[in-house]
Design a protein around this nucleic acid. Structure first.
Lengths: 402, 402
DNA sequence: TTGTAGGCGTTATCAT
DNA sequence: ATGATAACGCCTACAA
């Protein structure tokens, strides 16, 4: 942002502090003499327009704001002003406007990670909704760290966002602290895929338990009795709706203790020196082999994410384990890539559009209606049947030639 | 953003327009009576602090800015002010600060798509560099559309960003228009992976031609003579450095006309109703089959992106074409996933860290040193040899049982 | 129909 | 050491 005081154009400097144009009229003076587009060098203000046209700056403001009662300015001056606006290539200083109006038409979106397909999809959809409603989305990521999330939220508020969307789950933070630190002076909607915030607030989340329960039922009907859930090592499973749904399904069919059926894979993602997010498939291969070795009775698995299911499916295939003939797989997330695996994965949908719509609507309700009442919106998700799940195998004990 | 005028607290309303605290002191008054954190309801300003402490607002500003000469305020008042700042949970209005200082410590990053792994990686790295330098990155995406890019760039400038990074290539826009519309009043760096802007400007791009030439040389040395480049249908290939490198390699070894060796796949990506980006692998499968059928002499391919190479490799495998025994593949991008394909793909690196660093540095040079000279920074990229490229097969004509 | 004046929340430069 | 005062660019009564 170039301040008018930093311009080192000689003509400009010369005119400063002398006569009528001492302070503001210089740019239009210059434009009279040469046709160079000064808006590229320094910002043109309403004052500049006003002085060039010979009216007061407030008139320029009135003309530009183009209120429902536009017949308060004579057609002639209106024309001259608009003409000058065009000629001088005026662009409003949105900071000043925001300061004056107390509104920026901006919403802040705090995302846990930029690498997730779901983040990209939500961001893109959110942008569509926002554009339509006359808002801009400013996204900043938080590395899924709580402190950074809070810090950047305050920064965004300081920057004047009209509303805030915060995505992420923070299972290691006590609920009281969450409630205290996630309260802001602007309308806020908390968003998470499967882990609702453990306190009364305005939030949207995926009702993942429904889909997972469906998956267990589906597998049960196919004759499966040894169903495992596979996820990464994470503190948050107890509060996660995916696990809740799994637990519900397992219990309703008396298939054992859900906790014992939740199998933790080792961490399989890291960021390399070049800043890229790497999925270490070797780790997944060995973890898969170990799982199969230790659980030869397993006939079906439910993976907590497509990202995990796809390499596991691949590993099975290379091990000679047929899917679904030997083991059935149900995945989670409906990543478009699951359409083209071999076989295509049965997966629990993540209805991105609905989730984004609901989040945006809830935020707009907060902004437009100053609604601050806690409200939870749950978007249920359904099981999508494809070819990775089938009838239980005959030999309940799996034998593998390694 | 809540304006102070919209507060409907009765005590506040009652006090308005009466006596010393008529306008500003209400919040601190209220805070004296109840311990509720009003900063959650409405913004606390320096004025509020000042009135509570009983000093002038400008003093608060001085104390908070903590200039190199901090010994201008008595220790006592300084303490009292800081105390009040803490108690009232003051947070600066960054809009006002920006307006007054003419600087936001913010940079705008216009990204072509949120779905690309490379975008996520750059965003994350950029955020690291920015954080370290005391800047914030605000990213908005542009759907790779030129008009939207320009429009949003101006919006960001209006919002006061100190600098701009614009990613993308716009082969269908004439250079003169590019030059005209991509000139802004703030320091700007243009960034692209393989298609430099066709005019003098400050830009960073990957020197892809080097890596691709290396790939051709590498394949040539392995005995390959029928080398094809495979990419999506796109207007921009003529100006793309990947094609330039391919051309250079093909010509230097007299392997034919590069243009005829550039094979266009049909569009294989689209956005579904749910807002998710889908790679249609079925299309890639049929296109691959058609390619092989029409080019039985081909012994090696260079794919313009990993995203295309991976499903092609998969298709080859399922067709019974062995890689690299029957056909060699060299890919482009060094997506971490290429480490774990079967076999792992030889690929041309995209040095994300270096690219991001160079882009950020060039922007900072523009911001700090007001450097506006056109400057091109080229980051060369090297071929990474893995297992998908090997000696040319014996039978030069490939026979496939379909 | 147009101009004047005050405010938005800061920073910065003067006086005192 | 502290307080006035004038920017920053824009909006909005209200006055002329």
């Amino acid at each position: 942002m170039l301040s008018r005081m930093t311009c080192d154009c000689p003509l400009y400097a010369q005119e400063i502090g002398s006569g009528k144009y001492c302070k503001y009229g210089v740019k239009s003076l210059i434009q009279d003499y040469c046709s160079f587009d000064w808006s590229i060098i320094m910002a043109v203000t309403q004052m500049d327009i006003a002085e060039r046209v010979g009216v007061d700056q407030s008139l320029v403001s009135v003309v530009l704001s183009n209120k429902p009662t536009p017949i308060k300015v004579s057609v002639a001056t209106r024309q001259r002003i608009l003409q000058a606006v065009k000629e001088m290539n005026y662009r409003p200083n949105l900071l000043a406007r925001a300061l004056a109006k107390g509104k920026t038409h901006t919403i802040g979106f705090l995302t846990a990670s930029s690498f997730l397909e779901i983040t990209a999809a939500m961001l893109t959809k959110m942008d569509d909704f926002a554009e339509e409603a006359g808002y801009e989305v400013h996204s900043v990521h938080t590395r899924a760290e709580f402190d950074l999330t809070v810090k950047r939220a305050h920064k965004l508020i300081g920057r004047g966002v009209d509303g805030l969307i915060i995505s992420g789950a923070f299972p290691s933070i006590p609920p009281s602290q969450l409630q205290a630190e996630l309260s802001f002076s602007v309308p806020t909607v908390l968003f998470s895929l499967g882990t609702p915030m453990p306190f009364a607030c305005r939030q949207v989340y995926q009702g993942s338990s429904f889909g997972v329960k469906q998956a267990v039922d589906h597998l049960y009907e196919l004759g499966h009795r040894q169903i495992y859930m596979i996820g990464a090592k994470w503190k948050g499973w107890e509060a996660d709706l995916r696990f809740a749904g799994f637990n519900e399904g397992i219990e309703s069919h008396s298939l054992g203790g859900a906790k014992e059926k939740l199998y933790h894979f080792p961490t399989y993602r890291h960021t390399n020196e070049d800043g890229r997010r790497v999925r270490d498939d070797n780790r997944i291969v060995s973890a898969t082999k170990e799982f199969v070795k230790n659980h030869p009775d397993c006939t079906a698995i439910i993976c907590v994410s497509d990202d995990l299911a796809m390499p596991i499916l691949d590993t099975f295939t290379r091990m000679g384990i047929r899917v679904p003939e030997d083991i059935s797989i149900v995945s989670f997330g409906n990543d478009p890539a699951t359409l083209y695996t071999h076989p295509p994965l049965s997966t629990i949908d993540t209805p991105v559009r609905k989730l984004t719509q609901a989040t945006f609507d809830l935020l707009m309700d907060g902004i437009d209606n100053k609604n601050k009442e806690p409200k939870e919106v749950v978007i249920p998700s359904e099981l999508i049947l494809r070819q990775s799940s089938g009838p239980v195998r005959k030999d309940l004990r799996l034998t593998i030639c390694d």
